[in-house]
């Protein structure tokens, strides 16, 4: 009896800790799921839920990197092309080393990290605006992707690539999504339990003030972009393993969806605000929207516009609740 009361209190306290803004995102997700499942009951099937979690994993990891950078008041436009570059780099090294799976994993992560290091260098050492610096590295990554891959495609058939891209744990948790959750946990620890995390929020809230209180802006901003590069590398690994091939045209909509997921999840484009839970919800909302377009048989010509409109609506609802809260 006492144990039950303690548990109940714990849950209530935990729920109370969740900011109103997160409940708005939960509400949007709930309404979407309700409407879609009424339109097509197959939507709620277990294999579809698992499928959505598989589909959003790589984009979700990109969103985590985007969120961290946006909290500092920056932006990383290179993650989409960076994903393709890290993917082909990993794939080419993997094939050249006789399908060595460790090389594939390391290649993707190192590819992403190098991009992050270059981004951080350009932004902190040459004082380029993040928009300009990452726009340039976006083009660089695209060129490098073509140079490395020579436009060719190759297939990944190693059992471990199947596992990373489409395996599951105990039949209910897809491995790509599990990796995403681990990345959520790591990002959450960095943001909430480390000095680095505190500085990330401080730099985005007021960079000048952060500088005056003695924070080494150059060091920590550089580290932020390196972390974003790391997320790009991990996302690249999942993306190439999921689709089972190394192709130069893999960047797709990762960049825009990643940034959109972070913003839908409440990350402030002005910097200083953003949470892992919010981004997780943003990622799920985007995944459900993309999935729903097919389940509701929206024509291919209208899909991009409908998706854009729903994202805009979600952001507006979120902004409206924020306005009411602050007003």
């Amino acid at each position: 009896m006492t144990k039950d009361i303690i548990t109940e209190n714990f849950i209530i306290k935990a729920i109370k800790k969740v900011p109103t803004q997160r409940w708005v995102a939960v509400g949007i997700l709930f309404v979407l799921v309700l409407v879609i499942s009424i339109a097509n009951p197959l939507f709620l099937r277990w294999n579809n839920i698992i499928g959505i979690t598989q589909q959003v994993a790589a984009m979700g990891i990109i969103a985590l990197g985007a969120m961290v950078v946006i909290i500092t008041g920056g932006i990383d436009l290179s993650s989409g092309n960076g994903l393709a570059m890290a993917g082909v780099l990993a794939g080419v090294l993997y094939l050249r080393t006789g399908e060595n799976i460790a090389v594939l994993i390391l290649g993707a992560i190192v590819g992403g990290l190098v991009l992050g290091i270059i981004n951080g260098f350009l932004i902190t050492k040459s004082n380029l605006k993040p928009f300009v610096a990452t726009l340039a590295t976006m083009a660089l990554a695209q060129g490098m992707t073509l140079l490395i891959s020579e436009g060719q495609l190759a297939f990944l058939t190693h059992p471990v690539t199947y596992m990373i891209g489409g395996g599951n744990i105990l039949g209910f948790l897809s491995i790509p999504f599990a990796i995403f959750l681990v990345m959520c946990l790591i990002t959450s620890i960095i943001l909430n339990r480390t000095k680095f995390g505190t500085y990330i929020y401080a730099m985005g809230g007021n960079e000048e003030a952060a500088h005056y209180v003695g924070i080494n802006i150059t060091k920590y901003k550089w580290l932020t972009y390196i972390y974003a590069g790391f997320t790009t590398g991990v996302a690249a690994l999942i993306a190439i393993c999921r689709v089972g091939q190394i192709a130069p045209n893999l960047q797709g909509s990762f960049l825009l969806d990643g940034i959109a997921a972070a913003i839908i999840g409440g990350t402030s484009p002005a910097g200083g605000k953003g949470t892992v839970l919010g981004t997780l919800l943003g990622v799920l909302i985007l995944g459900v929207i993309s999935n729903a377009l097919t389940f509701m048989n929206v024509s291919s010509t209208a899909q991009t516009a409908v998706k854009g409109a729903i994202i805009l609506l979600a952001i507006l609802i979120d902004a409206l609740f924020n306005l009411r809260k602050s007003g």
């Binding site: 790589a58 993306a239 689709v243 192709a247 893999l250 960047q251 797709g252 097919t294 899909q303």
Partner: peptide, 8 residues
Amino acid sequence: GLGNWDPN
């Protein structure tokens, strides 16, 4: 379905 020329 929309593939956008991208295998993924």
